[in-house]
Amino acid sequence: MRTIHVIGIGAGDPDQLTFQAVKAMRSTDVFFILDKGEAKADLTGLRRDMLDTHLADRAYRVVEARDPERDRSAGGAAYSPAVGDWRSARADIYERLIADELGEDETGAFLVWGDPALYDSTLAVLEEVRERSTVAFDHDVVPGISSVSTLVARHRTGLNRVGRPVQITTGRRLAEEGLPDGVDDVVVMLDAHQRFRAFAGQDVDIYWGAYIGTPDEILVSGPLAEAAPRIERLREQARERKGWIMDTYLLRRSPGER
């Protein structure tokens, strides 16, 4: 039976690899890496650096495939179908990689940024492949240190306050729903449009980070009204310099603003 490890590798810092992750990597014969194009080549480079560091004494193979493009213009009711189409296109690639590149008694692995259970499609895509019943495999999941955990650690703050809930959402949902009632600490991921700007007139602090856990890491914190212009400027400069950006932030509302 083919085996697949889905390995969380942290937010980018090689030191965030857990012993469990390294152990799973060292039991892997084939690593599957989806290439996201020249602009994000350094993401592939970081994965290869981790392999070079921890598997220097053993043989393994790396198989790369081009990640399918997603329709990022789709919004509203079209958003979920567009994501579904993109995941199915990924499933086609995963299915081919597992069937053609992995022997029946071998172990393959996908190295997933952060934690595979938090806003990542790998588990859902593998489940779609399993449901097709064209190639048999077993799989397990190694949790990783998420960008959320790394963000609050870098800012030396907690994720929530005493006895209070915390919500993790996306930029799109934040724009549609605003800050939720009864929740004063909101983590926002996948925000390409800086939706935090809508709350600059409220008593809200922001803890923001881009390229968290990598040498390019950028951190900003403070009252949102003061920090927002600086974040926008740094974000634009970083995107122009690198061609892409991944950022996460925590919005912390004063209880009196509810």
Results as ranks from 00 to 15, higher is better:
residue 92 D to V: 10
residue 160 N to G: 14
residue 23 K to G: 07
residue 223 P to L: 03
residue 13 D to W: 07
residue 188 V to I: 13
residue 131 E to C: 03
residue 87 R to T: 01
residue 22 V to F: 05
residue 152 V to A: 04
residue 177 E to T: 13
residue 19 F to Q: 08
residue 88 S to W: 07
residue 183 V to W: 06
residue 172 R to Y: 14
residue 161 R to N: 06
residue 212 I to M: 10
residue 114 G to E: 02
residue 1 M to T: 07
residue 178 G to R: 06
residue 182 G to I: 06
residue 233 R to H: 11
residue 241 R to T: 10
residue 111 L to G: 04
residue 184 D to H: 15
residue 28 T to P: 09
residue 194 Q to T: 13
residue 219 L to I: 10
residue 228 A to I: 04
residue 122 T to H: 02
residue 45 G to F: 00
residue 30 V to A: 00
residue 98 I to D: 00
residue 107 T to A: 13
residue 184 D to Q: 11
residue 137 F to C: 02
residue 225 A to T: 07
residue 40 K to C: 01
residue 127 E to K: 15
residue 120 D to R: 02
residue 208 W to Y: 15
residue 144 G to R: 08
residue 115 D to N: 11
residue 56 A to H: 11
residue 22 V to C: 05
residue 124 A to E: 05
residue 202 Q to R: 15
residue 41 A to W: 01
residue 200 A to E: 13
residue 240 E to A: 15
residue 117 A to I: 07
residue 62 V to W: 08
residue 247 D to H: 10
residue 182 G to K: 11
residue 140 D to M: 02
residue 136 A to P: 04
residue 149 S to L: 13
residue 242 K to Y: 14
residue 196 F to A: 06
residue 140 D to Y: 02
residue 64 E to D: 13
residue 213 G to M: 02
residue 214 T to W: 12
residue 249 Y to W: 11
residue 135 V to M: 03
residue 248 T to M: 08
residue 14 P to M: 07
residue 252 R to A: 12
residue 244 W to D: 04
residue 238 A to E: 03
residue 118 L to R: 00
residue 193 H to P: 03
residue 110 F to D: 00
residue 35 D to P: 06
